[in-house]
Design a protein around this nucleic acid. Sequence first.
DNA 1: CCAAATTCAATCAAAATCATTCAAAAACAT
DNA 2: ATGTTTTTGAATGATTTTGATTGAATTTGG
Lengths: 250, 250
Amino acid sequence: MLTEERHHLILQLLKEKEVRKLQEFVEATGSSESTIRRDLSQLEEEKKLIRVHGGAALIKQKRSEPSMMEKSNQHAEEKKRIAMYAAKFLRKGDCIYLDAGTTTLAMIPHIEEKDITVVTNSITHAAALTEKGIQTFVTGGFLKANTRALIGQGALHGLNQYSFDKCFIGVNGIQLNVGFTTPDPEEALIKRTAMKQSLETYVLADRSKFNETAFAHIAHLNQAVIITDKLEQELLHSYKEKTSIKEVEA
Amino acid sequence: MLTEERHHLILQLLKEKEVRKLQEFVEATGSSESTIRRDLSQLEEEKKLIRVHGGAALIKQKRSEPSMMEKSNQHAEEKKRIAMYAAKFLRKGDCIYLDAGTTTLAMIPHIEEKDITVVTNSITHAAALTEKGIQTFVTGGFLKANTRALIGQGALHGLNQYSFDKCFIGVNGIQLNVGFTTPDPEEALIKRTAMKQSLETYVLADRSKFNETAFAHIAHLNQAVIITDKLEQELLHSYKEKTSIKEVEA
DNA sequence: CCAAATTCAATCAAAATCATTCAAAAACAT
DNA sequence: ATGTTTTTGAATGATTTTGATTGAATTTGG
């Protein structure tokens, strides 16, 4: 077995399981202990993994993000279910727009179809997507500090270069007669534009967003399909008349 | 069997399996070991594959350019000194372009003048800048996995929206008669364009970049000021005739 | 805290692979 | 047909990789 192959296999095994014993590599490759040790040293040198006593561990670069982190804890479970369900709408070859925000971010780990092209206005999302081996384009624009979203003329301009099969956006408010809303007018403009360029629009929203209104208007209810968790019958009924709602399946 | 046929077959086999032993090629073609070795050398020359001990591997971006992580450790001290010195060139109100790359990234912690506007094609840089409270714009474009730089038409397009007082770029090679070079032609184009839009250009380069040539040409020596560490007298002299060099002060 | 067990880095000789050279064979031009 | 160039395969010694062995370092269990 060639050195390259071994290295590849070692990293592959580590991807499946974060920490592995040296002996596991020995068995998997059929090489001697010495050889595996050398391999691990090399790969550590290349920053591909970290050696630990008795084996090796996957390298982890955690990007902590306080403002983002705080948010993502609220309704975390609900968001995760919604995101996982939304990810199932992706098809081979799709070109999609992925909006900034915690709910759309939660989609990324659950994307199974790798053969898609994604455009996003969030550098956090972009990094995560590329990490997963997904073709990713960034809109460009002014980088807003607290949400890490790209906004402004630059973002709008970048966005106008593309057309999408589907777009997935997050909102802060959903109201029967108002439609979808978000606090920042600049972000609203971006979301609206993305929807305009897209054949289908999915709005990801947990229960807390319903019957709320934020400052800036994005679009009317009938312009998107809402993906959400199980709603109360009453609420669901009143909205079903105005728009299409997909509820997370059990 | 013709040379052409063998080459084709070799590449074909590599497409099926990323890494192959030399012996596999020998058997598949019925040629001698020597012949296959010659073939592999040639194909490597043509950048169709890379040779590894015992065989050959399919070309992968990953291998041709060391990853960000890997790079950041090489010449770390020297880079830091250069970056710190370069940061002193910033003036209140400046609009600058900050190129992707580890040396330019090292500038960010040392930026004292907060009243500047920065455009960058690296999402890593953008995040760090915004974190520091600096107005930051991102070019947009395709996100390259290993360097986290934005490239392609989108990046070019975004870049064209701005003009700069100064731009700070990194390079991989500096050669007297060749000028500045970098491995990826796409990135070279971005760098070149940024320089065009800028009144002054600073190239940040540690000693190891001198008398090296990478694949893609960026610009000639006289089109930028080089910021570097202390050089050997001989080297310094030969370059001083062709361009302007700022050496890190003690 | 110590001692046994495990894991480690360093060293070395054997095996595999490598670049280089050279002469024979093949393809080519004249 | 003859001489020239190119391609090929074998032989060479150099280089790299490998697995076993050693004693040192670390972890584990009492």
